[in-house]
Design a protein around this nucleic acid. Structure first.
Length: 207
DNA sequence: CGACCGATTGACT
DNA sequence: GTCAATCGGTCGG
């Protein structure tokens, strides 16, 4: 069984998030995303991220602030949670200073802690769910970790929802690809994937 | 106001 | 491979 000591439970500091989104997206690979729910701690290791910023036509922030995207303009380290296709939640962490309008979408984790409670939530909409499918994709990840709009605007610098480093953290090898589901604009390679992880969403980034 | 689209998913052919 | 679910944003009339 995974150890509860997988993470030191110290959140990543504000300074980590006060950088360009692409840098933060890359450096979040291999970190832990944890949520303290009524059923206990759950979470895992981040294996896939995407960066968005205000100069990017595909970003929600490209057209300025609205009621829906306002949290994307909060200080780095703030949760931005939005509804996708009217059905799913997607979880982002903002980067840079207030009003910067940049964020990193967390697209997939390798589940480590609280696997049973995550499976319970996923089975509410699935007949069957392998460990691999618990949090592979932004909507699935939010359901597994019980992240919804009540977390929108919440700081990630303190519990219950936190980003931190696993014990003995080392930056993993990674690859970049075009982002998933983007049809606007000239696409930039702002999707970051842990090399050869089996917990990635979408098409395989390497042969 | 109505039509269409999207940083998606899951069931089905 | 196809397609529906479901809702806020955006754009045209």
């Amino acid at each position: 069984m995974p150890s509860l000591k997988m993470s030191n439970l110290r959140p990543l500091p504000l300074s980590f998030f006060l950088r360009p989104a692409a840098q933060v997206a890359r450096d979040l690979l291999g970190r832990t995303l944890l949520n303290e729910t009524p059923l206990g701690l759950c979470g895992g290791v981040i294996v896939e991220t995407e960066a968005y910023d205000q100069s990017d036509p595909a970003s929600h922030s490209a057209q300025g602030k609205t009621e829906r995207n306002q949290m994307m303009f909060e200080m780095g380290g703030t949760a931005y949670v939005y509804r996708s296709y009217g059905v799913h939640w997607c979880f982002n962490v903002t980067t840079g200073k207030k009003e910067n309008g940049a964020a990193v979408l967390i697209r997939a984790i390798e589940p480590i802690i609280g696997i049973e409670q995550m499976r319970t939530r996923r089975l509410q909409t699935m007949r069957d769910c392998s460990n691999r499918d618990l949090a592979r994709g932004p909507g699935r990840l939010c359901q597994a970790l019980q992240i919804d709009d009540s977390y929108n605007g919440h700081t990630l610098l303190s519990p219950p929802l936190m980003l931190s480093s696993p014990v003995g953290f080392k930056r993993p090898q990674y690859v970049t690809t075009p982002r998933i589901g983007i049809t606007k604009a000239t696409e930039t390679p702002w999707r970051f994937c842990v090399y050869k992880s089996t917990f990635l969403s979408g098409p395989k980034p390497q042969s």
